[in-house]
Each structure stands twice: as structure tokens, then as C-alpha cells.
Amino acid sequence: MASPKSAAIAALRRQLMMGDGLSPSPAPQVTRLGIAAIDAVLPWGGLPGGAIHEVTGPENDGAATGFCTTLLARLSAGTRPVLWVTAHDDLYAPGLAAFGLSPERLIVVRARRAAETFWTIEEALRCRSLAAVLGEVRGPSRTVARRLQLVARSSGVTAVLLRHDEDDAFANAITRWHVVSARRDDAAEDDSDARWRVDLVRCRGRIHGEEGYVARWFVEWRAATGDFGVVADLRDRPDRPAPARMAR
């Protein structure tokens, strides 16, 4: 039932999106994460393409890498190539394959200096044959960030920036995630292989609560099936359900 009011709101929301670094037309391609609880909170029903997404996590923890790998696997949809810009050259193909990112669809680029990294990301974002570009970066400057955003928007290629430093947020990202490992239950019936605490720290179109994040989930991964599930962790769960309020 589309009332004139809701249509006007939808139009306004589209305008907001355009101002926020999403491609104006055609509508950005949305990739579902495949985790229903998370897709429901994202205003687009998934990750919009042609924009920048930022993932942070400590360096001595593989969870953020795992989350990024999952994102790339979803964006690649098993057929389209993706490019990963790394500084340390420590990606291990069998591990990536376990998260659904088939290594023969992956091009790994090693860039040693920050300038080379950003140049590589920008060049790769111009290539429409790629599904996504992942860059392991450290605090890009505002100018660099703006450049990457413009390139991503014009080509429609999605950029994922993985950061291990905890500096201020990368202003042009339309979503920002913080992913760390979470402790699993000691019970023997816990058959999951990994558990992450996934915080959606920032998201265009959603405002975050006093806790400093928009929403928090505990995500479990099972290697045998390769699927994810959201668990309600009693100890670490926030007092009330994750707030998903609309931007005013």
C-alpha cells in the first residue's frame, strides 16, 4: 500500500543515499550477506555495490579477515573475479576456499607502500570486470578517501577496506564494521567452528545508539556447511534488542 507520504519518504531517502556516496542511477546492486538478521538491519537489504565498506579488527585476530573473505565471496558470487591488495603476502588459499572465496577467482596484489596500495585500489576500482576490490590499508587521508569513493561510484565496483588500526573512521565508507573473535560456549554440544562478534559501527541511514554501534551480532560459522548463524549470547548480549532506528 503506497501512500503519497511513503512515496515522498522513499524519494527523499534516495536523495540522501545519493549524497552519501551511492551511485544515483541505476540503483546500486545489492549483495545479500546471507545472514538474515544482518540483512534486515541494513537499509538496502544487503551490501550496496559501487561504494566503500570498511572493516576493522585487531591484527592478531583472524576474524576481520574471515569476515572480509565472506564479503568477497558473496560479492564474487562464485563467478566474478575479485582483487585483494595486501602488504604482507600472508593470505592462504586453502583457508580462503573454506570461506567460499575460490582462489582461482582471486588476484592477489602485493603493494609495499601506502601510496602504491591506494594507487592499486583506485586502478582496480576502475576495472568493471571485477566484482570487488579489497585493500588492507592504514588511515587514508580525506583526499584519498574521496577519490576512491568517486571512482567506486562511477564504476560500480565495490571496495572493501580492511584496517587493523583503530584510528578514526574512514569518513566516506557507507558501512563500517568491527569484527573480533568471540569466545564460544564451553558446552560440548557447540558444534560451530568459529564465533565472531560483529559490530555494525556505522551505517548510512541508521544512527548508532549510546553503545557506539548500530547493531551487534554474535555470528557462528560452521566449516562443514560453510553457513553462518546468529546466536544470542546471553553473557554479551546488549540489554535490549539491537536498535535499528531510521535516520532522522
Binding site: P94, S102, P103, E104
Partner: peptide, 16 residues
Amino acid sequence: AAPAWPVGERPLRLLP
């Protein structure tokens, strides 16, 4: 080429 990855659980990052 078609991959034939080793069996067993393997890490995501392998230190050089």
C-alpha cells in the same frame, strides 16, 4: 585451473 586444496582445516593467513 581447477583447484585441489589439501584436506584438513587450514588457516586464513599463513605467516611467511
